[in-house]
């Protein structure tokens, strides 16, 4: 299919995918805790309600920043499938994440500000990995676009075991699962009254939620890049990863940001960096 057509398709399908994923997640989490849990479509009900509620932004720039967050998060996915250079999208992705930080930071209240700072830590912790991963994928396949990587005869994941392992850790953070003093998951076990969104109401939370769905879809695209030889297998792998994350989340509910920053950097450096090094030594 023409990659230019894939971009709007992504814009439409990604929120459905992300929303369903969140719904399934809430059901599975509930089951793990011995509860029945909400309907699978619950995230869509929530979004629908949030969009109907009254909004009282604390300042005039929160909403523009949040809209930017949604737009650039959606754009980075659309750019990937639309055939823009993969590495470049890592920077668009970072911009999108940053805009959420700025939206919360602009509120200048204790909870929001602390949430923003910690989210910035998350960005600091995860950004090196995404750059390394996309660089390694480009290096392995010799391709710099999504379509190119999928069409490449080279199987990516078997050559990048370190990257795959590191992905598991970084995804935990990016899916807002752990650590508890950062994540904005639906579970009551995190501190800061959800920090980032403490002072957002109504559709403002809706925007954050929507962007998060796009982000989940984006992570799925990354898995697809790693498992480039079979899209169904990639989807399966993503779901397995996601299930593992829920498990991790429900069992390590007290990890804090210092640990996360240090461990993510260590893992990225050793596993992903080591993998990249091996790749360069063997491939050139």
């Amino acid at each position: 299919m023409n990659p230019i057509l894939l971009a709007p398709l992504f814009l439409l399908v990604a929120p459905l995918f992300g929303g369903l994923l969140t719904g399934v997640d809430r059901v599975i989490s509930a089951r793990m805790q011995g509860r029945v849990g909400p309907p699978v479509l619950q995230p869509f009900y929530d979004l629908g309600k949030l969009l109907q509620k009254d909004v009282r932004p604390v300042n005039p720039i929160v909403e523009p920043l949040l809209l930017g967050h949604v737009v650039f998060m959606a754009l980075s996915g659309a750019m990937i499938v639309g055939g823009v250079d993969l590495l470049f999208t890592a920077f668009v992705f970072a911009l999108a994440a940053l805009l959420l930080v700025l939206a919360a930071g602009s509120v200048n209240s204790p909870y929001s500000f602390t949430g923003a700072e910690r989210e910035l830590i998350v960005l600091l912790a995860s950004e090196p990995f995404f750059i390394l991963m996309l660089a390694a994928v480009s290096k392995v396949t010799g391709e710099s676009t999504f379509a190119g990587v999928l069409a490449s005869p080279e199987r990516v994941a078997p050559i990048l075991p370190g990257i795959v392992l590191a992905f598991l850790l970084v995804a935990t953070i990016k899916l807002r699962k752990s650590p508890f003093d950062i994540s904005t998951s639906h579970h009551p076990h995190q501190e800061l009254v959800r920090g980032l969104t403490s002072d957002m109401s109504g559709r403002l939370i809706g925007w954050v939620e929507l962007a998060h769905w796009y982000e989940s879809a984006l992570l799925a695209l990354f898995v697809l890049l790693l498992v480039n030889w079979s899209p169904p297998l990639a989807l399966g792998a993503f779901l397995v990863v996601y299930f593992l994350e829920i498990l991790v989340d429900n069992s390590t509910s007290r990890a804090k940001w210092q640990l996360v920053l240090q461990s993510t950097w260590a893992v990225t450096l050793v596993l992903a960096g080591g993998n990249v090094l091996a790749l360069f030594l063997l491939r050139s």
């Binding site: 920077f91 600091l124 090196p128 390394l132 450096l269 990249v276 090094l277 790749l279 360069f280 030594l281």
Partner: peptide
């Protein structure tokens, strides 16, 4: 490899 790793961490 070293250059790429340095740039990845430096950018973050």
């Amino acid at each position: 490899a070293a250059f790429v790793v340095i740039l990845a961490f430096g950018s973050a």
